[in-house]
Design a binder for these strands. Structure first.
Length: 217
DNA sequence: GACCAGGCACATC
DNA sequence: GATGTGCATGGT
């Protein structure tokens, strides 16, 4: 596990994640990027920035159809407009629009509150917790799952919690480390780990198990 | 034109 | 409890 990290870091260098200028922008991005490439999300966020709506209170006042129109480039835009609204209502109604107040809450409690929002699942919650609130929780995504199972480090059918537990057990509790490691996993996933799993040219190819990658997922 | 992207909720069996 | 489906734009 540590060696995996070392190899990735050596090859790709620091990733400077999350690409967002404020914690609030990170939160919005976390919802918008669900099953969607970051490039599309960036356009949507740019629309919100142009409209000067990148703060909880302004965005909460906007009606859901106008919000949907602005985030259109991110895909699933009607669905995501509702999901954003649900998240905004937590921020505004429970924390009076203050992210500082929200982030003062302890990790397990805040994680539960986020998960209780319709449209926020484990990955989105953990992304917000790690990259916006800077709390030590590992973010598991499809790339994480794919890379680890190909390398025989987890069983292919391992669920979210199990994979996350594995990182928490193996690594020191360290926000910058979790941040960088997850970013590197996405990076290698985007660069080399596409559907056909030959792993050619991958910086991790030399550390695959005997007989190559374990399966196409 | 197919296939994919930094998921999640809900329906159905 | 397991499996299937809708959601949608933009890049390869």
């Amino acid at each position: 596990m540590h060696q995996l990290y070392e190899q990735l870091y050596e090859h790709f260098g620091p990733q400077q994640w999350w690409p967002g200028e404020s914690p609030f922008e990170v939160m919005v991005g976390a919802v918008l990027t669900q099953n969607t490439s970051w490039k599309n999300v960036a356009r949507a966020i740019e629309n919100l920035r142009q409209a000067e709506l990148l703060d909880p209170l302004s965005l909460y006042e906007l009606d859901v159809e106008e919000l949907a129109e602005l985030i259109r480039p991110a895909g699933y835009f009607r669905l995501k407009a509702r999901r954003l609204r649900n998240l905004l209502s937590l921020i505004v109604e429970r924390y009076d629009g203050s992210l500082d107040a929200m982030f003062a809450v302890d990790l397990p409690t805040l994680r539960e509150q986020l998960l209780s929002v319709n449209g926020i699942g484990p990955e989105t919650a953990d992304s917000i917790l790690l990259y916006a609130a800077e709390k030590p929780t590992f973010v598991v995504d499809t790339y994480t799952h794919r890379v680890l199972s190909r390398h025989g480090l987890i069983e292919p059918e391992a669920d979210y919690h199990r994979i996350q537990q594995f990182f928490h057990d193996e690594l020191p509790t360290d926000v910058p480390l979790y941040n960088e490691f997850h970013a590197l996993l996405v990076r290698v996933g985007n660069a080399h780990c596409r559907r056909t799993p030959k792993c050619e040219g991958c910086p991790l190819a030399h550390m695959l198990p005997e007989g190559g990658p374990l399966l196409p997922e």
